[in-house]
Protein backbone atom coordinates (compact mmCIF):
# COMPACT_ATOMS: atom_id res chain seq x y z
CA UNK A 1 0.00 0.00 0.00
CA UNK A 2 1.37 3.45 -0.85
CA UNK A 3 1.03 6.59 1.25
CA UNK A 4 -1.86 7.97 -0.79
CA UNK A 5 -3.76 4.71 -0.50
CA UNK A 6 -3.10 4.68 3.21
CA UNK A 7 -4.36 8.24 3.63
CA UNK A 8 -7.52 7.27 1.71
CA UNK A 9 -7.93 4.17 3.85
CA UNK A 10 -7.48 6.29 6.96
CA UNK A 11 -10.10 8.76 5.73
CA UNK A 12 -12.61 5.98 5.10
CA UNK A 13 -11.95 4.42 8.49
CA UNK A 14 -12.45 7.87 10.01
CA UNK A 15 -15.90 8.17 8.44
CA UNK A 16 -15.20 10.68 5.68
CA UNK A 17 -18.35 12.09 4.03
CA UNK A 18 -16.99 14.44 1.37
CA UNK A 19 -13.68 14.85 -0.49
CA UNK A 20 -13.13 17.80 -2.84
CA UNK A 21 -10.10 18.15 -5.07
CA UNK A 22 -8.52 19.76 -8.08
CA UNK A 23 -5.92 17.47 -9.65
CA UNK A 24 -2.33 18.08 -8.59
CA UNK A 25 0.57 15.67 -8.39
CA UNK A 26 1.30 13.98 -6.04
CA UNK A 27 -2.00 14.33 -4.16
CA UNK A 28 -4.36 13.31 -6.97
CA UNK A 29 -4.36 9.60 -6.27
CA UNK A 30 -6.12 10.10 -2.95
CA UNK A 31 -9.05 11.41 -5.00
CA UNK A 32 -8.77 8.37 -7.27
CA UNK A 33 -8.71 5.93 -4.37
CA UNK A 34 -11.62 7.59 -2.60
CA UNK A 35 -13.62 7.99 -5.82
CA UNK A 36 -13.36 4.28 -6.55
CA UNK A 37 -14.83 3.47 -3.17
CA UNK A 38 -17.44 6.23 -2.98
CA UNK A 39 -20.50 4.13 -3.78
CA UNK A 40 -19.43 1.15 -1.70
CA UNK A 41 -18.58 3.31 1.32
CA UNK A 42 -21.27 5.97 0.70
CA UNK A 43 -19.16 9.10 0.63
CA UNK A 44 -18.77 11.57 -2.25
CA UNK A 45 -15.77 12.79 -4.24
CA UNK A 46 -16.11 15.95 -6.32
CA UNK A 47 -13.64 17.70 -8.60
CA UNK A 48 -14.26 21.45 -8.66
CA UNK A 49 -13.03 24.27 -10.91
CA UNK A 50 -9.96 25.20 -8.87
CA UNK A 51 -8.41 24.94 -5.42
CA UNK A 52 -10.16 28.12 -4.29
CA UNK A 53 -13.52 26.52 -5.03
CA UNK A 54 -12.34 23.30 -3.38
CA UNK A 55 -11.55 24.82 0.01
CA UNK A 56 -14.53 27.18 0.03
CA UNK A 57 -16.90 24.34 -0.84
CA UNK A 58 -15.25 22.34 1.92
CA UNK A 59 -15.94 25.09 4.45
CA UNK A 60 -19.55 25.17 3.20
CA UNK A 61 -19.90 21.42 3.67
CA UNK A 62 -18.08 21.37 7.00
CA UNK A 63 -20.47 23.88 8.57
CA UNK A 64 -23.42 21.65 7.69
CA UNK A 65 -21.78 18.98 9.85
CA UNK A 66 -20.24 16.77 7.16
CA UNK A 67 -16.79 15.25 7.68
CA UNK A 68 -14.93 16.98 4.90
CA UNK A 69 -11.44 16.58 3.51
CA UNK A 70 -9.53 18.15 0.62
CA UNK A 71 -6.21 17.38 -1.03
CA UNK A 72 -3.60 19.23 -3.02
CA UNK A 73 0.12 20.00 -3.40
CA UNK A 74 2.05 23.20 -2.66
CA UNK A 75 0.84 25.37 -5.55
CA UNK A 76 -2.78 24.45 -4.98
CA UNK A 77 -2.36 25.00 -1.27
CA UNK A 78 -1.11 28.52 -2.02
CA UNK A 79 -4.46 29.23 -3.66
CA UNK A 80 -6.32 27.90 -0.64
CA UNK A 81 -4.70 30.06 1.97
CA UNK A 82 -7.28 32.86 2.12
CA UNK A 83 -9.96 30.32 2.96
CA UNK A 84 -7.63 28.60 5.44
CA UNK A 85 -7.75 31.89 7.29
CA UNK A 86 -11.57 31.90 6.89
CA UNK A 87 -11.77 28.43 8.43
CA UNK A 88 -9.59 29.85 11.22
CA UNK A 89 -12.01 32.64 12.16
CA UNK A 90 -15.18 30.64 11.45
CA UNK A 91 -13.71 27.70 13.43
CA UNK A 92 -15.00 25.20 10.90
CA UNK A 93 -13.35 21.77 10.95
CA UNK A 94 -11.28 20.82 7.93
CA UNK A 95 -8.79 18.10 7.02
CA UNK A 96 -6.27 19.09 4.35
CA UNK A 97 -3.98 16.59 2.71
CA UNK A 98 -0.90 18.45 1.48
CA UNK A 99 1.43 16.23 -0.55
CA UNK A 100 4.58 18.20 -1.32
CA UNK A 101 6.85 18.30 -4.30
CA UNK A 102 9.86 20.57 -4.83
CA UNK A 103 9.07 24.24 -5.47
CA UNK A 104 9.18 27.16 -5.79
CA UNK A 105 6.45 27.37 -8.41
CA UNK A 106 6.15 24.37 -10.71
CA UNK A 107 9.61 23.34 -9.49
CA UNK A 108 10.04 19.63 -10.06
CA UNK A 109 6.45 18.64 -10.57
CA UNK A 110 6.80 14.87 -10.38
CA UNK A 111 9.64 14.62 -7.84
CA UNK A 112 9.78 14.70 -4.07
CA UNK A 113 10.57 17.36 -1.49
CA UNK A 114 9.78 18.57 2.02
CA UNK A 115 10.02 22.29 1.38
CA UNK A 116 6.45 23.13 2.40
CA UNK A 117 6.72 22.76 6.17
CA UNK A 118 7.21 26.50 6.71
CA UNK A 119 4.21 27.20 4.47
CA UNK A 120 1.97 24.67 6.21
CA UNK A 121 2.82 26.20 9.58
CA UNK A 122 2.37 29.81 8.54
CA UNK A 123 -0.02 30.01 5.56
CA UNK A 124 -3.00 32.33 5.85
CA UNK A 125 -3.30 35.91 7.04
CA UNK A 126 -4.03 36.81 10.62
CA UNK A 127 -3.42 34.78 13.74
CA UNK A 128 -5.26 31.50 14.12
CA UNK A 129 -4.69 27.95 15.27
CA UNK A 130 -4.07 25.08 12.88
CA UNK A 131 -2.36 21.74 13.20
CA UNK A 132 0.36 20.22 11.05
CA UNK A 133 0.85 16.46 11.30
CA UNK A 134 3.30 14.39 9.34
CA UNK A 135 3.24 10.63 8.82
CA UNK A 136 6.43 8.79 7.85
CA UNK A 137 5.04 5.54 6.44
CA UNK A 138 1.76 3.97 5.29
CA UNK A 139 0.76 2.80 8.76
CA UNK A 140 1.23 6.28 10.12
CA UNK A 141 -0.65 7.72 7.13
CA UNK A 142 -3.75 5.89 8.31
CA UNK A 143 -3.26 6.75 11.95
CA UNK A 144 -2.43 10.41 11.36
CA UNK A 145 -5.40 10.83 8.99
CA UNK A 146 -7.74 9.54 11.68
CA UNK A 147 -6.12 11.87 14.22
CA UNK A 148 -6.58 14.77 11.77
CA UNK A 149 -10.33 14.08 11.66
CA UNK A 150 -10.41 13.70 15.43
CA UNK A 151 -8.72 17.02 16.18
CA UNK A 152 -10.53 18.94 13.43
CA UNK A 153 -13.91 17.83 14.72
CA UNK A 154 -13.14 18.19 18.42
CA UNK A 155 -11.56 21.64 18.19
CA UNK A 156 -13.07 23.12 15.01
CA UNK A 157 -9.67 23.66 13.39
CA UNK A 158 -7.92 22.92 10.12
CA UNK A 159 -5.54 20.01 10.33
CA UNK A 160 -2.92 19.67 7.62
CA UNK A 161 -1.59 16.20 6.86
CA UNK A 162 1.83 16.95 5.43
CA UNK A 163 3.17 14.30 3.08
CA UNK A 164 5.39 14.33 0.01
CA UNK A 165 5.69 12.56 -3.32
CA UNK A 166 8.03 9.90 -1.94
CA UNK A 167 5.68 8.93 0.86
CA UNK A 168 2.59 9.33 -1.33
CA UNK A 169 3.74 6.96 -4.04
CA UNK A 170 6.10 4.51 -2.33
CA UNK A 171 4.82 1.06 -1.56
CA UNK A 172 4.93 0.00 2.06
CA UNK A 173 4.16 -3.19 3.90
CA UNK A 174 1.74 -2.65 6.75
CA UNK A 175 3.31 -4.58 9.63
CA UNK A 176 0.93 -3.79 12.44
CA UNK A 177 -2.75 -2.93 12.33
CA UNK A 178 -2.98 0.87 12.39
CA UNK A 179 -4.65 2.41 15.43
CA UNK A 180 -7.59 4.44 14.16
CA UNK A 181 -8.80 7.25 16.40
CA UNK A 182 -12.58 7.54 16.08
CA UNK A 183 -14.10 11.00 15.78
CA UNK A 184 -17.61 12.34 16.31
CA UNK A 185 -19.35 14.88 14.10
CA UNK A 186 -20.06 17.79 16.39
CA UNK A 187 -20.41 20.79 14.08
CA UNK A 188 -23.90 22.27 13.73
CA UNK A 189 -25.21 24.73 11.19
CA UNK A 190 -25.58 28.19 12.72
CA UNK A 191 -24.51 31.68 11.69
CA UNK A 192 -20.83 31.60 10.71
CA UNK A 193 -18.82 34.66 9.79
CA UNK A 194 -15.60 35.70 8.09
CA UNK A 195 -15.92 38.94 10.04
CA UNK A 196 -15.50 39.18 13.80
CA UNK A 197 -18.91 38.28 15.14
CA UNK A 198 -20.91 38.17 18.36
CA UNK A 199 -22.28 35.04 20.00
CA UNK A 200 -25.19 34.96 17.54
CA UNK A 201 -22.90 35.22 14.52
CA UNK A 202 -23.64 38.84 13.68
CA UNK A 203 -20.79 41.11 12.62
CA UNK A 204 -19.26 43.17 15.37
CA UNK A 205 -16.47 45.67 15.86
CA UNK A 206 -16.83 45.86 19.64
CA UNK A 207 -13.32 45.86 21.12
CA UNK A 208 -14.48 43.77 24.08
CA UNK A 209 -16.02 41.06 21.89
CA UNK A 210 -13.10 41.10 19.46
CA UNK A 211 -10.62 40.66 22.31
CA UNK A 212 -12.68 37.78 23.68
CA UNK A 213 -12.97 36.14 20.25
CA UNK A 214 -9.22 36.40 19.59
CA UNK A 215 -8.39 35.00 23.01
CA UNK A 216 -10.93 32.17 22.73
CA UNK A 217 -9.61 31.16 19.33
CA UNK A 218 -5.99 31.18 20.43
CA UNK A 219 -6.82 29.39 23.69
CA UNK A 220 -7.35 26.29 21.60
CA UNK A 221 -3.61 26.06 21.03
CA UNK A 222 -3.10 25.11 24.69
CA UNK A 223 -6.10 22.77 24.65
CA UNK A 224 -4.79 21.06 21.53
CA UNK A 225 -1.31 20.78 23.05
CA UNK A 226 -2.82 19.06 26.09
CA UNK A 227 -4.91 16.71 23.97
CA UNK A 228 -1.95 15.92 21.73
CA UNK A 229 -0.12 14.51 24.78
CA UNK A 230 -2.37 11.45 24.38
CA UNK A 231 -0.86 10.70 20.97
CA UNK A 232 2.48 9.58 19.68
CA UNK A 233 3.79 13.03 18.69
CA UNK A 234 7.33 11.83 18.11
CA UNK A 235 8.92 8.43 17.99
CA UNK A 236 12.32 7.26 19.15
CA UNK A 237 14.29 4.62 17.26
CA UNK A 238 17.81 3.23 17.46
CA UNK A 239 20.13 3.33 20.47
CA UNK A 240 18.19 5.25 23.08
CA UNK A 241 21.26 6.28 25.10
CA UNK A 242 23.37 7.37 22.12
CA UNK A 243 25.06 10.78 22.07
CA UNK A 244 24.23 11.04 18.38
CA UNK A 245 20.64 12.04 17.68
CA UNK A 246 19.21 12.16 14.20
CA UNK A 247 16.12 14.32 13.82
CA UNK A 248 13.75 14.17 10.86
CA UNK A 249 10.09 13.98 9.82
CA UNK A 250 8.01 12.42 7.08
CA UNK A 251 9.27 10.25 4.26
CA UNK A 252 13.02 10.08 5.10
CA UNK A 253 12.01 7.78 7.97
CA UNK A 254 12.51 4.60 5.95
CA UNK A 255 15.99 5.44 4.70
CA UNK A 256 17.06 6.65 8.15
CA UNK A 257 15.90 3.45 9.84
CA UNK A 258 17.90 1.40 7.34
CA UNK A 259 20.94 3.66 7.60
CA UNK A 260 21.25 3.54 11.38
CA UNK A 261 20.81 -0.23 11.77
CA UNK A 262 24.35 -0.83 12.93
CA UNK A 263 25.61 2.58 13.91
CA UNK A 264 25.62 4.36 17.24
CA UNK A 265 22.70 6.74 16.83
CA UNK A 266 19.25 7.51 18.10
CA UNK A 267 16.57 8.71 15.70
CA UNK A 268 13.76 11.08 16.67
CA UNK A 269 10.93 11.17 14.13
CA UNK A 270 8.56 14.09 14.53
CA UNK A 271 4.93 13.29 13.65
CA UNK A 272 3.44 16.43 15.24
CA UNK A 273 4.98 19.61 13.91
CA UNK A 274 2.25 21.96 15.11
CA UNK A 275 1.76 21.66 18.02
CA UNK A 276 5.45 21.01 18.56
CA UNK A 277 6.03 18.29 21.16
CA UNK A 278 8.11 20.07 23.78
CA UNK A 279 8.87 16.75 25.46
CA UNK A 280 11.21 16.01 22.57
CA UNK A 281 13.53 18.73 23.83
CA UNK A 282 15.08 16.60 26.54
CA UNK A 283 15.78 13.85 24.02
CA UNK A 284 18.00 16.10 21.91
CA UNK A 285 19.39 18.68 24.32
CA UNK A 286 23.17 18.58 24.64
CA UNK A 287 23.50 15.82 22.05
CA UNK A 288 25.25 15.70 18.71
CA UNK A 289 22.15 16.50 16.64
CA UNK A 290 22.09 15.55 12.97
CA UNK A 291 19.25 16.89 10.84
CA UNK A 292 18.01 14.90 7.84
CA UNK A 293 15.54 16.67 5.54
CA UNK A 294 14.48 16.75 1.89
CA UNK A 295 14.75 20.53 1.66
CA UNK A 296 17.42 23.19 1.24
CA UNK A 297 16.95 25.29 4.35
CA UNK A 298 16.42 22.72 7.09
CA UNK A 299 12.88 23.70 8.00
CA UNK A 300 12.51 21.22 10.87
CA UNK A 301 15.83 22.56 12.17
CA UNK A 302 14.34 26.06 12.16
CA UNK A 303 11.23 24.81 13.94
CA UNK A 304 13.34 23.11 16.63
CA UNK A 305 15.35 26.31 17.08
CA UNK A 306 12.17 28.37 17.36
CA UNK A 307 10.57 26.13 19.95
CA UNK A 308 13.55 24.93 22.00
CA UNK A 309 16.36 27.39 21.35
CA UNK A 310 18.53 24.48 20.21
CA UNK A 311 20.53 25.40 17.12
CA UNK A 312 21.68 22.55 14.90
CA UNK A 313 25.10 23.26 13.41
CA UNK A 314 25.16 23.74 9.65
CA UNK A 315 27.77 21.01 9.25
CA UNK A 316 25.32 18.58 10.88
CA UNK A 317 22.54 19.23 8.39
CA UNK A 318 22.09 16.53 5.78
CA UNK A 319 19.83 18.21 3.26
CA UNK A 320 18.80 16.90 -0.11
CA UNK A 321 16.93 19.16 -2.50
CA UNK A 322 17.41 17.63 -5.95
CA UNK A 323 13.93 16.11 -5.88
CA UNK A 324 15.26 12.65 -5.10
CA UNK A 325 14.67 10.80 -1.85
CA UNK A 326 17.45 9.72 0.49
CA UNK A 327 18.94 6.29 -0.11
CA UNK A 328 20.03 4.31 2.92
CA UNK A 329 23.61 3.53 1.82
CA UNK A 330 24.45 7.10 0.87
CA UNK A 331 22.71 8.44 3.95
CA UNK A 332 24.63 6.06 6.18
CA UNK A 333 27.92 7.48 4.90
CA UNK A 334 26.69 11.03 5.45
CA UNK A 335 25.59 10.21 8.99
CA UNK A 336 28.83 8.37 9.83
CA UNK A 337 30.89 11.42 8.85
CA UNK A 338 28.99 13.40 11.48
CA UNK A 339 29.01 10.90 14.35
CA UNK A 340 30.78 11.66 17.61
Amino acid sequence: MNGNQAVSEGAIKSGIDIYYFYPMTPATNVAGELAEKQIENNHIVLELENEIAVINAAVGSAITGAKTMIGTSGGGFDLMTEALSLAGIAESPLVIYLASRPGPSTGLATYSGQGDLDMARHAGHGEFVRMVLSPGDAEECQEITSQAFYFSQKFGVSVIILSDKHLAECLYTIKEKPVITPSKKVTILKKYNSYESDKFGYMTESPEIVNKNVENRLKKQKEIEREAEKFSQFKIFGKSNSENVIVSWGSPKGAILDAIKDIDAKFIQFLYLDPFPMKAKKEIEGKNIILVENDATGQLGKLIAEKTGIIIEDKNKILRYDGRPFFADELKKEIERRLK
Partner: peptide, 21 residues
Protein backbone atom coordinates in the same frame (compact mmCIF):
# COMPACT_ATOMS: atom_id res chain seq x y z
CA UNK B 1 -28.22 30.19 9.48
CA UNK B 2 -25.40 30.29 6.98
CA UNK B 3 -22.11 32.06 6.47
CA UNK B 4 -20.90 35.52 5.62
CA UNK B 5 -17.95 34.25 3.63
CA UNK B 6 -15.00 35.64 1.65
CA UNK B 7 -15.15 38.12 -1.20
CA UNK B 8 -15.99 36.27 -4.42
CA UNK B 9 -16.54 32.83 -2.86
CA UNK B 10 -20.30 32.76 -2.31
CA UNK B 11 -20.90 30.21 -5.08
CA UNK B 12 -18.53 27.41 -4.06
CA UNK B 13 -19.69 27.94 -0.47
CA UNK B 14 -23.34 27.51 -1.52
CA UNK B 15 -22.38 24.43 -3.52
CA UNK B 16 -20.55 22.99 -0.51
CA UNK B 17 -23.57 23.55 1.69
CA UNK B 18 -25.86 21.83 -0.81
CA UNK B 19 -23.48 18.87 -1.08
CA UNK B 20 -23.24 18.82 2.73
CA UNK B 21 -27.00 18.85 3.08
Amino acid sequence: NGINTLHGRVLPTCLGMKVGN
